[in-house]
Amino acid sequence: MNPVFWQTVWGLLPYWLVIVLMMIGLHVVMTKPNLIKKIIGLNVFQTGVIMFYITLGKVDGGTAPIFGSGGDEVVYSNPVPHVLMLTAIVVGIATTSLALALVVRLHEAYGTIEEDQIRRLEGDEV
């Protein structure tokens, strides 16, 4: 096999997975009329980015970044991306809960959570 090919596919595997995950999420958000499914798609999309950050923090042979008795020769994984993603996850939860609250209100107001039906009802109102 061509070594360049293997390096692109296998060496960059985490990035490929991230891209696939993000595109799945994007696809769901754009094509599904169901609002809950849209929110799920949005979550998958965000998870892709979270995975991306986590792969950044990986150091070959690195261990958990807990400062102990190991001395200077211990290699640690980079903790910063993990900490950042803790915040990003919180942001994601806040977004999801607000979106779900809006869906509840939409269901009360329109009696449906399918976007095409809502659009039809909206069309009558203009």
Partner: peptide
């Protein structure tokens, strides 16, 4: 005041979160 505000807010949320996530990716 109208129920269409809810639809507008939901669409804004979807698009806005996309924007935020792209920004996060760029920052990464």
């Amino acid at each position: 005041p109208s129920r269409r505000a809810l639809v507008a807010a939901f669409r804004y949320l979807i698009v806005g979160t996309m924007g935020g996530t792209f920004l996060l990716l760029g920052i990464g």
